[in-house]
């Protein structure tokens, strides 16, 4: 019975999120859209608290209190001009949550010996996208906040190095899917993904950063989808897919609005590297 109530509440929450995205696309209804989304989130969280798997409350209450106290100033006391870096920092938080859940569920499966290939694949994708987003967002935050130099940092063979690291991380994931239960392989995959996150944002200049922040949002959504598959949770799949695909479309729309091609923003280092070398030499 409780299970049915939870699923129906998730259905309602999914409807709210879809209406929210739709309303957010028009200036007149945007604010209502945001309220729909907030209400949908409240419904989803309230329904989850009924879940039979939740047996202890002290960690939940502690986390909710700390999160609210930390989130309030992040929302209320930040200047509007600091918006992109604030969103980047917030992404880092969200993605860290997804990665930690992935690692926690993996450890749980490891201890109980219940890891299947499918579950490992889902958790692997979750941690892959999650840790990539954490470090990528922190890099974006650092560049926008001018803690790190905002200009593109380029070096020879950058794209090839990135590609190599992605291939290595993917290989680790495949190895883990074929024979689940090797924490070392799983861990090195997470570390590789985190490295890719740093290197991926390194060559992108401050002006192009909002596109990257939106793309990282898309990755955070895909991490939520993977969590949904691992935990058999439909609301995570629906909302993650909405977030993931709309974030992707949004980052393309943003680069179009800046008169830049999407590929140029992301892989600009291919063409730009020799120019910078020449400038440095001359």
């Amino acid at each position: 019975m409780t299970h049915t109530i939870i699923q129906l509440a998730y259905l309602g929450a999914a409807l709210l999120f879809i209406s929210a995205l739709r309303a957010l696309g028009h200036p007149d209804t945007a604010r209502r859209g945001m309220q729909f989304a907030a209400f949908g989130m409240a419904v989803a969280v309230a329904a989850t608290l009924l879940d039979a798997r939740i047996v202890s409350w002290q960690w939940i209450v502690a986390g909710l209190i700390v999160g609210t106290v930390a989130g309030y100033p992040l929302g209320m006391h930040i200047k509007m001009t600091a918006m992109p870096q604030r969103i980047a920092l917030s992404h880092a938080f969200g993605a860290l949550a997804a990665s930690l859940v992935g690692i926690g569920e993996y450890a749980h499966g490891l201890v109980h010996g219940t890891l299947t290939s499918f579950q490992t694949a889902s958790l692997g994708f979750e941690v892959l996208f999650g840790s990539l987003t954490v470090t990528g967002s922190l890099m974006a935050f650092g560049k926008l906040q001018e803690i790190l130099p905002g200009r593109p940092l380029l070096f020879r063979g950058q794209n090839w190095l990135n590609l190599g690291l992605i291939v290595l991380a993917a290989a680790a994931l495949v190895a883990e899917i074929v024979t689940p239960g090797h924490p070392l392989v799983f861990g090195s995959m997470a570390v590789l993904a985190a490295l890719v996150g740093v290197l991926f944002v390194l060559p992108i200049g401050g002006a192009d950063m909002p596109v990257v922040v939106s793309l990282l949002n898309s990755y955070a959504g895909l991490a939520a989808v993977a969590t949904g598959f691992a935990l058999d949770n439909t609301i995570l799949i629906v909302v993650g897919a909405l977030d993931g695909l709309s974030g992707f479309i949004l980052s393309m729309a943003m680069s179009r609005a800046m008169n830049r091609s999407f590929a140029n923003v992301l892989f600009g280092a291919f063409g730009a590297a020799p120019t910078v070398d020449a400038a440095a030499a001359g």
Partner: peptide, 30 residues
């Protein structure tokens, strides 16, 4: 979507990606 709404939409979808709270709750209360 009009470019005017790009940044608010990015902020809103950022908040929506916090849906991983659902999974975090289950782990924290397990």
């Amino acid at each position: 979507i009009p470019p005017l709404l790009h940044t608010p939409l990015m902020a809103a979808t950022n908040a929506i990606s916090g849906i991983s709270l659902v999974a975090a709750l289950v782990l924290a209360g397990s």
